[in-house]
Amino acid sequence: AQASVVANQLIPINTYLTLVMMRSEVVTPVGIPAEDIPRLVSMQVNRAVPLGTTLMPDMVKGYA
């Protein structure tokens, strides 16, 4: 199964992502692939992302 990117903490709206904020986990539904974690660093979330939430492409500015 493919691992997705999951929030490792509460990520406030407009926060620039860093490695410590994200982890990879096999979840349903599938979100942003874990292999894209390096690409996500320094990208901004466009909403608050609670701890344990799967990151979806529409949550990250400029990802989709």
Score class of each variant (00 low, 15 high):
Val20Thr: 15
Ala64Phe: 05
Met21Pro: 00
Pro50Glu: 06
Thr18Ser: 15
Thr18Gly: 06
Arg39Glu: 12
Gly52Pro: 00
Tyr16Thr: 14
Val41Ala: 10
Glu25Gly: 13
Gly31Phe: 02
Pro29Leu: 05
Leu17Pro: 02
Met22Thr: 02
Ala1Asn: 13
Glu25Gln: 13
Val26His: 08
Ala64Ser: 10
Thr53Met: 10
Pro38Met: 12
Leu19Ser: 04
Pro12Ala: 12
Ile32Met: 04
Val49Thr: 06
Val5Leu: 04
Val20Asp: 10
Lys61Phe: 11
Pro57Ala: 10
Gly31Gln: 03
Arg47Ile: 12
Thr53His: 15
Arg23Trp: 04
Gln9Val: 11
Arg39Tyr: 08
Val20Pro: 13
Ile32Thr: 02
Arg23Phe: 06
Met22Glu: 00
Asn8His: 06
Ile32Lys: 00
Ile37Pro: 00
Gln44Lys: 09
Ala7Ile: 06
Pro38Ala: 10
Met43Lys: 09
Val26Lys: 09
Leu40Ile: 11
Gln44Gly: 04
Thr18Asn: 09
Pro38Gln: 14
Val60Cys: 03
Pro12Asn: 13
Ala7Ser: 15
Gln9Met: 11
Gly31Asp: 01
Arg23Gly: 12
Glu35His: 08
Tyr16Ala: 15
Ile37Ser: 11
Ile37Lys: 05
Ala3Pro: 15
Asp36Phe: 11
Ser4His: 01
Glu25Trp: 05
Thr28Trp: 10
Leu17Glu: 00
Tyr16Ser: 11
Ile32Pro: 00
Pro50Ile: 07
Pro29Val: 04
Val41Trp: 04
Val60Gly: 01
Met21Val: 05
Met21Glu: 03
Pro33Met: 09
Val26Gln: 15
Ala1Phe: 11
Tyr16Val: 11
Val49Cys: 03
Ile37Val: 07
Asp58Lys: 06
Arg39Val: 05
Ala3Val: 07
Thr15Val: 11
Ala64Arg: 02
Pro33Tyr: 04
Leu10Gly: 09
Ala3Arg: 11
Tyr63Ala: 04
Ile32Trp: 02
Pro50Cys: 04
Leu51Ser: 11
Leu55Trp: 01
Val5Gln: 01
Met22Ile: 10
Thr53Leu: 05
Ala1Val: 12
Pro38Val: 07
Pro29Glu: 11
Gly52Thr: 03
Tyr63Thr: 05
Met56Tyr: 07
Leu51Cys: 03
Tyr63Glu: 04
Gly31Lys: 00
Ala64Ile: 11
Val20Cys: 03
Glu35Val: 14
Gly62Asn: 13
Val45Asn: 04
Ser42Ile: 03
Glu25Asp: 07
Arg23Val: 10
Arg39Met: 09
Arg47Met: 07
Pro33Asn: 15
Met59Tyr: 10
Leu55Ala: 00
Ile32Cys: 03
Val27Pro: 02
Val26Leu: 14
Gly52Phe: 08
Ala48Trp: 13
Leu40Asn: 00
Asn46His: 11
Asn14Gln: 09
Leu40Cys: 03
Val49Asn: 01
Leu40Glu: 00
Met59Leu: 05
Asn14Arg: 06
Ile37Tyr: 03
Glu35Phe: 11
Ala7Thr: 12
Val20Phe: 15
Asp58Pro: 06
Pro50Thr: 11
Ser4Tyr: 03
Ala3Leu: 13
Pro50Gly: 07
Val45Arg: 00
Ile13Gly: 14
Ile13His: 11
Ala7Leu: 04
Val6Gln: 04
Thr53Val: 09
Leu51Val: 13
Pro12Val: 04
Thr28Gln: 14
Met59Ile: 08
